[in-house]
Design a protein around this nucleic acid. Structure first.
Length: 638
DNA sequence: GACGAGACTTGGAATAATTTTG
DNA sequence: CAAAATTATTCCAAGTCTCGTC
């Protein structure tokens, strides 16, 4: 029994329940007169509107709550080790498979069929995904069929051959019913479930690192499932259940070593203070040297320290950036082909914030590229009538997100592209003399710790800071300032090409805009008709009055057409706004101290910008940044 | 330095929680 | 008050990059 003494839950929470309530602002007019954009508004529950939170904690609370360690106020240590003491209780395993009730039947070729437990378990995974996007894809189906057949009995394998002849409907309906039941539980039952969850989190969700209790990010091992890769050839494969025997535990020698679930043993136990992970197991899909790790939460001291280090490296880049830019500009125009390619690559990484683009194994993975792996067909050179030169980009980046951009470039860059693309054709690497490792080695020589991804961090953070400077009106209302923040944030997100799907969103704003456009189109048609009538009348008898009528009607029509164009512009703006994800840049690319300083300076409560989880993650920045903090300013110790 | 194992960061989708709406 | 809409968080896939080894 895997789980008898290690209860498992369906959900854990990483954030504290600070009790923030949010509501949406009423549609507000934009002061810059652009589209009527709405911004989420965050309302803090109490009166704790001061940016320095924690100041108002009651004395009783202080006694019980361990004082937060202010590691950012301690001197830096060059210690290589990540910890000297690490103790935890090991991960929680997925609940054991619960067989389907007797009355839930699987049918093959219309005939009811009893499946063996293993085959049934894998079948239920598929049934649960029946109305998912990916399960429609043929690769998904093919991979699932192959892996499913592997767990079937000889007899089952003989019968079940075609997925199309399988009927999972009853199984699928059964799980929907279970979901429904869960939703309709009584309040008491819900509370009890919550408490159970909390107890498990309390035991397994935390660890002790050097005397401090720290939250663990993923203390539950991934349950068995069907692989949901994006654009991967392996989607639909069965991801097997992880057993304690698959798991390696990492903790200190002198800690209480976690006990494996009864009847089981850990695969192995190690005590490596150079590693940040608490447990790991081999990735069942990728296999080989790829592992899944249990690590500390983003809000832990260790991750905070790593985050701060990342931003300080990006800030160090600021003092080198002119030199680096001058150099790559020189290289772009220079003679050598390698340096020319590297110069152009640097230009793309710096200006367009492209990812470096490591080589990856062909076939297995989706055909996505980064800077160094761009191919001939991803780029088009355009010279337009006005003499302006453009380069258009069209390729799939990380997670198969499309990158489309049209950039106007100087002659020198255009020429360099022409030279680089000479004698190349579809399928050829754009920078055939270059790869990610070579480019990073080059950067490493320019500045210690400099790699291609630092440019993304640097430029995103710089964008935020610049745009905040530019857009914030000191005399404005809080709402206006917050809107300015969102626009600055959006600038960074746009740079990083952070997208989100909008397929199912047909929100009211969009709907009303659409109906407005339709109405306008109708009005235009009517106006066209009346114009034609007026023109005809003028044809019959060419009086000056009739001529002015025609002119008037023309004017009206033109005005309507212009209004429609305006609405269409608004529509694209709105669509574009919806397709941008702001949260990714906020968490990974924007130095939180920029935000904190801005909040302090403009007296905006931090809760209006950061979610409760973000407040926990960025506590170091909230404490350490004064209103004078500048990302491009002097670097403090650390 | 090239290579590959492996560890750590980043990212959109799924899902849970909360708020608004009808 | 339930359902719909919206926001926040979790999940886990897919990148980047380091480091040890030859």
């Amino acid at each position: 029994m895997v789980t008898d003494e290690r209860p498992s839950t369906s959900q854990g929470r990483e954030s504290s329940s600070t009790g923030q309530k949010r509501r949406k602002l009423n549609d507000e007019e934009n002061d810059d007169g652009s589209n009527g954009e709405t911004i989420p508004k965050k309302k803090s529950k109490g009166e704790k509107n001061d940016v320095n939170r924690g100041a108002s904690t009651s004395k009783e609370e202080k006694k019980n709550v361990e004082e937060r360690r202010k590691w950012w106020k301690e001197g830096k240590s060059d210690n290589r080790a990540r910890w000297t003491f690490l103790e935890h209780n090991g991960p929680v395993f997925a609940p054991e498979y619960e067989p389907l009730p007797k009355d839930v039947t699987f049918y093959y070729d219309e005939n009811p069929m009893m499946l063996s437990p293993r085959a049934e378990e894998v079948a239920t995974l598929y049934a649960k995904m029946l109305n998912h996007q990916s399960s429609v894809k043929s690769v998904f189906k093919r991979n699932f069929r192959t892996d499913w057949r592997k767990v079937m009995t000889e007899k089952e394998r003989k019968i079940i051959k075609e997925l199309e002849m399988c009927n999972f409907q009853e199984i699928s309906a059964h799980f929907m019913k279970v979901e429904e039941k869960k939703k309709n539980m009584s309040e008491d039952e819900k509370v009890e479930l919550q408490n159970e969850k909390k107890a498990i989190e309390e035991k397994y969700g935390f660890c002790i690192v050097d005397g401090r209790r720290q939250r663990i990010k993923n203390y539950k091992v991934e349950p068995p499932g069907l692989f949901r890769g994006r654009g991967r050839k392996v989607m639909g494969k069965f991801k097997a259940r992880i057993m304690p025997e698959d798991v390696t535990i990492n903790c200190s020698k002198d800690s209480k070593i976690p006990t494996a679930p009864s009847g089981h043993k850990w695969g192995s136990v190690c005590h490596d203070p150079n590693e940040t992970w608490l447990a790991r197991w081999k990735d069942p899909i990728r296999g080989g040297n790829c592992y899944k790790y249990v690590t500390l939460s983003h809000s832990s001291d260790l991750k905070g320290q790593m985050d701060l280090r990342k931003y300080e490296t990006a800030r160090r880049l600021h003092s080198k950036i002119d030199e680096i830019r001058n150099k790559y500009w020189e290289h772009i125009q220079g003679e050598g082909m390698l340096t020319k390619q590297r110069g152009v690559a640097m230009y793309l990484i710096d200006k367009l914030a492209l990812r470096v683009g490591n080589e990856k194994e062909k076939g297995e993975t989706a055909d996505t590229v980064g800077c160094c792996t761009l191919r001939f067909q991803h780029i088009k050179l355009r010279e337009e009538r006005d003499g302006m030169k453009y380069i258009t980009f069209n390729f799939l980046g990380k997670d198969s997100v499309p990158y489309r951009n049209k950039v106007s470039v100087k002659d020198g860059v255009f020429k360099a592209f022409q030279l680089i693309m000479e004698n190349k054709r579809k399928g050829d690497k754009l920078f055939h003399l270059l790869d990610a490792a070579e480019l990073n080695r080059y950067l490493q020589r320019k500045m210690k710790g400099l790699t291609a991804k630092v440019f993304r961090t640097y430029n995103a953070s710089m964008t935020l800071q610049k745009k905040l400077d530019e857009l914030t009106v000191s005399a404005g209302t809080d709402e206006e300032k917050i809107l300015a923040y969102y626009q600055a944030n959006k600038g960074a997100a746009l740079l990083c090409n952070h997208q989100r799907s909008t397929s199912k969103n047909d929100d009211n704003a969009m709907k009303s805009l659409k109906s407005k456009i339709q109405k306008k189109a109708k009005a235009i048609k009517d106006a066209e008709k009346t114009l034609k009538r007026a023109e005809k009348a003028y044809e019959v008898s060419k009086t000056p009055e009739k001529k002015t009528i025609v002119k008037e009607k023309k004017k009206i029509l033109e005005k309507l057409r212009e209004e429609k164009r305006e609405l269409l512009r608004e529509e694209t703006l709105m669509k574009k706004g919806k397709e941008i994800a702001l949260n990714v840049s906020k968490i990974y690319y924007l130095d939180p101290r920029i935000t904190v300083a801005w909040c302090k300076k403009h007296r905006i409560p931090i809760e209006k910008i950061f979610t409760p989880a973000e407040i926990e993650i960025f506590d170091w920045a909230i404490d350490m940044a004064t209103q004078d903090f500048r990302f491009d300013g002097l670097i403090n110790s650390v």
